[in-house]
Write a protein that binds this DNA or RNA. Structure first.
Lengths: 235, 235
DNA sequence: ATTGACAGGTGTACGGCGTACACCTACCGT
DNA sequence: ACGGTAGGTGTACGCCGTACACCTGTCAAT
């Protein structure tokens, strides 16, 4: 009876359940506390049980990436290449904001997973359909770089200055400490410059979404100009 | 005597020697084999000895980053903002190609180190001196993103498909496997499209340097256009 | 010359990690 | 009824970062 209840209580554990649990764990507790042991415990199972469904931790991470990439919405049909790409990249960005660990995970993998390749493939298809030459498309993919997957490094975010905060505290506005401002005057000026709509005086964080779209449009507009000019490699 | 010889043989170990050894080890054997134990052995010392000079492994990594950033050549004075930035970013890129582990290390740190902040600061100074408004400069820093530190994610490099190669094998040209090409036709087309000057037929890797400069100039030109227009945030 | 503080290298040990390997057990087609 | 197999278990190994107690050589003040 008790055993039967227990048998019913947990679904028999499969690759999908493992991946979803891993993503949830990484989202909630941070990627650094995603260990095979923790994950197994979360699933009410002994660590080695996981290895019957994923080859090793690297493959687990690949699977998690695929889950995340799968959340990106498909290309909108029937619009120009520029809005189509734009929308999808911004969708990717939303997804990656839900899974902050994913960008680093994607970058640190040595090879793209099939899901990532599929994503890139459809993106390239949209560019080609939009009239970009194969050559230009190639360069464009490089130029967009990681932005095409919805993330760009926030290494300019000087307000991440203080000791690392756990993944539970997403990002408190954190004003620039005065001693830092004194040592790096230009950084200080810039940090406060674009505190757009937020009314707070002491250089509250900038509008990340605006920054992302600014860079994206800068690139997209430049690309469109090249395309309209019938760009071919002068290389 | 023997002890005296031994005493002479090894310089008394200081933070600088540790950092340089760590960088060398990471360059040569890959960041994944940089452990406190390995590093200590390399220095002919017991692991715990390192902790008299660096607080912990995170601080060691910060120090390594500072060493790398310190190798980037300073701003060229007396030229316009655009070539000045361009030169320095390309210098940063050269440095990061010598230390392939560094880009991921920089990204994974939660806060910028003082050396990185100083680097960004001087970069911002050059933009401001070039006539960009503080506001525009802010956006520009975001737009350039990690490229300003000399790296962009190579996640489009589909030829990194096969099993991970050790850091000793830098990047064999590795043609796109046919089954991958079949599944991702657009990727395949693009991968072969821009095999520029290299004469090899089977889609040898693309010219990374060209790609990097293409993206960089796309951004720089777009920025210059904004500046010339007297850009102010229409936000 | 003696001492005592202190900088810096050593040794041991702990808890956590990924995972190899042998094992058990429940089910299923014959 | 039974052997194979899929899937969960338990133990163990070798790594990791690092806390903590210890030793030793140097040098300033006595």
């Amino acid at each position: 009876m008790a055993e039967q209840a227990e048998t019913l209580r947990r679904t028999p554990l499969n690759r999908d359940r493992i991946l979803r649990a891993a993503v949830t764990l990484a989202d909630g507790a941070g990627i650094e506390s995603l260990s095979m042991r923790n994950l197994a415990q979360e699933l009410g199972v002994v660590p080695m049980a996981l290895y019957k469904h994923v080859a090793n931790k690297d493959e687990l991470l690949d699977g998690m990436i695929d889950v995340v990439v799968g959340e990106i919405e498909p290309l909108t049909p029937g619009v120009g290449w520029q809005p189509a790409i734009r929308r999808r990249v911004l969708s990717a960005r939303q997804v990656l904001r839900r899974h902050p660990w994913a960008s680093l995970a994607i970058e640190s993998r040595s090879a793209a997973t099939p899901a990532v390749l599929g994503y890139l493939d459809s993106m390239i298809g949209a560019l080609r359909a939009g009239g970009l030459s194969a050559d230009l498309t190639h360069h464009v993919m490089h130029a967009l770089g990681s932005r095409i997957l919805g993330f760009s490094q926030e290494l300019f975010d000087a307000s991440r200055q203080a000791g690392r905060t756990g993944p539970t505290t997403p990002a408190p506005p954190a004003p620039l400490p005065p001693e830092v401002a004194a040592r790096f005057p230009h950084v200080a000026e810039i940090a406060t410059a674009a505190a757009h709509d937020t009314g707070t005086v002491v250089g509250a964080g900038c509008d990340d979404q605006f920054e992302f779209e600014f860079a994206l449009d800068l690139l997209l507009d430049g690309i469109e100009r090249l395309r309209a000019r019938g760009w071919t490699s002068a290389h």
